[in-house]
Amino acid sequence: MRMRPPRYRVHRRAIWYWTVRAAPGWLVLLAAQLVALAVGWGWLRQWWVLTVPVTVVLAAAHLLVMPQWRYRVHRWEVTPEAVYTQAGWFNQERRVAPVSRIQTVDTDRGPFEQLFRLTNVTVTTASAAGPLRIDGLDRDDALRLVDQLTADTQAERGDAT
């Protein structure tokens, strides 16, 4: 037997969300180099001329490949008994937790998420190692999911450790 991937993909807008979220880091790196180039530390000039194109190429590759790759990997599924998620791109991780062991169900919307009308759902258990995160759900889907999980977990008793 083998494990199949979870059934549902996240929303397509998540591709843009991941792109926009990763861009600032590259922009800062690039800007620092351009400033250094403009200030013109003479003896380093040839060095910057080399690194700026390399940075641009790496950034472009990362921003094009990573979101598409993530969209293919990120998946989720919720049954009455279990929550199952798959995330990552270069390194990937699948997480399964029984609904009976769920401690909290959180949603969060940062500025980037708001921009694309997306919501992240985080399901935590009593273990610090096991939060299950579903990135980039459509806002309405996320609310439905949270409602369902809250209803399912309320049926359980005990402190779930």
């Binding site: 494990m3 270069f90 390194n91 990937q92 991780e93 699948r94 997480r95 399964v96 937790a97 029984p98 062991r101 258990t125 009593a126 273990s127 610090a128 190692a129 096991g130 299950l132 779930a160 450790t161």
Partner: peptide, 30 residues
């Protein structure tokens, strides 16, 4: 045990391996 994490890095996937993590509320948590 209160859940499973199955981690596969790029190289682990090529080698057909998985790191299976049992999460728990005690000790190192994983």
């Amino acid at each position: 045990i209160i859940g499973w994490n199955l981690h596969r890095s790029f190289f682990q996937r090529r080698a057909g391996l998985v790191t299976l993590t049992a999460t728990t509320a005690g000790g190192e948590q994983a």
